[in-house]
Design a protein around this nucleic acid. Structure first.
Lengths: 256, 256
DNA sequence: AAGCGCTTGTGAAGACACGCACAAATCGCG
DNA sequence: CGCGATTTGTGCGTGTCTTCACAAGCGCTT
């Protein structure tokens, strides 16, 4: 959350023209800008140019300006962007002006780590409840929270108005957990289980699969290796290490 | 890896026309197809239609067919795709016919979980070495591997020909770690630290930021909330609970 | 052997995203 | 007060990704 607005102040001092509907690609980059802006703010910067911010976020400056222009114009020509104002603006659009409660299901290997990950707390989220299906784990206390049985999931989610759920269970259990989350009123799910979830319309699912990321890297390894190893192949014209053009610049590599 | 080819058999029985250069979006989906295919194979399916596989992978069938067509055509009209053949094909393209060694740096909260995550091992990767900067952690044994000091990183990576590195350190240390990985000959990096890495051309970086995923979900929560709060907007209330489609959808048949 | 139903592979069109390049706006300075 | 340096905001061309729709191909049945 922004430390630039006193806690008691109204949520949004500057009028915002409703919620603009942003391109999905832009939405995915806003959190990155936000992180860079917080870094700048901590270092005492009050304004920042698009060039600077873009470099800090790993994108090119034209893209950054276009992204920000979708929020309405908040820069000053010849000067740059007001860091504090931009932070407020982005946090408002992302819905981070209220701390959001998250239910974490599955306190195994990964879930345990997520429960202790302070990156959530520092960026606007509060893990409000932990669940697991294993009776041995139920009752265990992690970071001040007691693990509850997954049968309680729907009830607790409803009672505490939890809107976001994180699934860190084995794949076999993920769909059942998702159903219970939905039944408990959850409308956004972050899924770490390697499987596809079926959810009703109106529920958003994002998937993070750690092995898939490695497999994508593996592909690029394979491609790089086959390029250097086969000078005689059809693509003979390619120099030993073309430093494949746009494909390996930071933007693309970082892109979701 | 595929269990459909005897361990001793030559790596690639069927000739593959060099490495086609695939659209990046396609590459990102191939691992998902692969996972679905392995599920099908375990359940004894020998062929699969694009419609079925697409549903299992969470994409639409036209996209799936176009993706697969980039690998060369391996389907039979009127029948579908040969599951075992397609698995081999995708694993070859992704470079998964050889088990790849990975160095994991940062054995804190998240790194510890990653070191114990069996999803890596089961999908073609071997964590070959663990590193940390904290002397207290050096020497600790995790899953049969001893944590080494990060100063050894470049040397060990070179000696063991490790091509992929995973960074699970705090953001402040990530760039230094990346530099050492590169110095050790690593050409692919999976970065869990919330920061942008600068690497030479020819090195691929993928970033996974857990908090960013939540922030993107938060945006959609915010948007949904502002829509329902304003009944004047075109979209009336969503139907209460559409329920899951038919009981005969591919997901269930696959039985993750 | 011919016909029929099913499924793949792909051309073409549309949607989206990206990056260049420049006009418009602002500030600081003489 | 005016001018030049700087930086934003954006129109536009380009390339990539997605989706539709259908011809071509395959196997099964009669």
């Amino acid at each position: 959350m922004s430390q630039h607005r006193p806690p008691g102040a109204p949520e949004r001092p500057v009028a915002v023209p409703a919620l603009p509907d942003l391109p999905e690609a832009t939405v995915a980059r806003l959190p990155e800008y936000l992180r860079a802006l917080h870094n700048l703010a901590e270092n005492g910067h009050e304004t920042v140019s698009s060039e600077w911010l873009a470099t800090a976020a790993g994108v090119n400056s034209a893209k950054l300006r276009k992204d920000l222009s979708h929020l309405g114009s908040y820069g000053t020509r010849g000067v740059g962007y007001d860091v504090a104002l931009l932070i407020d603006q982005i946090e408002y659009v992302l819905g981070l002006t209220q701390r959001r409660s998250v239910a974490l299901v599955g306190v195994g290997n990964l879930g345990h780590a997520l429960a202790g990950y302070d990156g959530f707390a520092t960026r606007g989220f509060r893990i409000a409840a932990l669940f697991d299906a294993d009776p041995v784990r139920v009752g265990e206390e992690i970071n001040g929270l007691v693990v509850q049985h997954v049968d309680e999931l729907s009830r607790v989610a409803t009672e505490e108005s939890i809107a976001i759920g994180v699934i860190a269970t084995p794949a076999a259990a993920a769909q059942r957990v998702a159903d219970r989350l939905v039944a408990g009123g959850v409308t956004s799910i972050l899924n770490f289980a390697p499987c596809v979830l079926t959810v009703p319309d109106g529920v958003d699912v994002r998937k993070v699969d750690l092995a898939i990321e490695l497999q994508i890297l593996s592909f690029h390894e394979h491609r790089k290796a086959s390029q250097t190893a086969l000078p005689a192949a059809g693509e003979a014209a390619l120099p030993p290490l073309p430093g494949n053009l746009a494909a390996t610049n930071p933007q693309e590599a970082i892109g979701t």
